[in-house]
């Protein structure tokens, strides 16, 4: 088993929490993990990404090679496209459709969505709306994790256990809210 995943978004959207949950679950599965993160200056409203690699065999590189990512998970549609040259031919993009517009020259959103739609393996969801409908408006990142969970080759129970573990210190309400977002995201992607 090997999954090379690029997580993308804008600083502050919560991509690292997605990576942390997958990481916890992968450890439970006794898989090898490498996860390169971005800290520092670019976190201030700039584009951020994390390279997450999980495998049943030892992993050498901390970074994913171009053309080799099995999955791009993005909290923002333009950020999903930014990493397109990293995607493998048979790889999937799972992305939020709600644009995060904090720059004056943000591309035309119809063209952006059309370009995404033209790709062979794409799941596009408004995870902000899904999280809100599930009563967890602050958990769109975890709703997105739910949406891509069937592509991860990790059992959902283990991902849910990861959610319980990493949000435990924030109290039961936060845990339940994130679990609800996760399940709603998963259900939406399966429809």
């Amino acid at each position: 088993m090997k999954k090379d995943i690029i997580l993308a978004g804008v600083g502050g959207q919560g991509i690292l929490s997605i990576a942390t949950v997958i990481g916890h679950a992968a450890i439970k599965e006794n898989l090898y993990i490498k996860q390169a993160e971005v800290h520092g200056m670019s976190q201030r409203g700039g584009d951020v990404q994390s390279n997450l690699r999980i495998s049943s065999e030892p992993i050498a590189s901390d970074l994913i090679a171009r053309g080799c990512a099995d999955l791009i998970i993005s909290l923002e549609p333009m950020e999903a496209l930014r990493y397109l040259p990293f995607l493998a031919e048979e790889g999937w993009i799972v992305t939020n459709t709600t644009p995060f517009v904090n720059i004056p020259n943000y591309p035309d959103s119809e063209k952006l969505i059309a370009e995404l739609k033209a790709l062979p393996h794409v799941i596009m969801l408004d995870v902000d709306a899904i999280a809100k409908d599930a009563g967890s408006p602050r958990s769109s990142n975890i709703a997105l994790l739910g949406a891509c969970s069937s592509l991860l080759d990790i059992e959902s129970e283990k991902l849910e256990a990861g959610i319980r573990e990493i949000f435990a210190r924030k109290g039961d309400a936060v845990v339940e809210s994130n679990l609800a977002a996760f399940r709603a995201g998963r259900a939406a992607a399966n429809r």
Partner: peptide, 16 residues
Amino acid sequence: HKLFAPAENVVPRPPA
């Protein structure tokens, strides 16, 4: 490796 071409509708998003 074989690659997808870079996307057209992407612009830089510098920190602010």
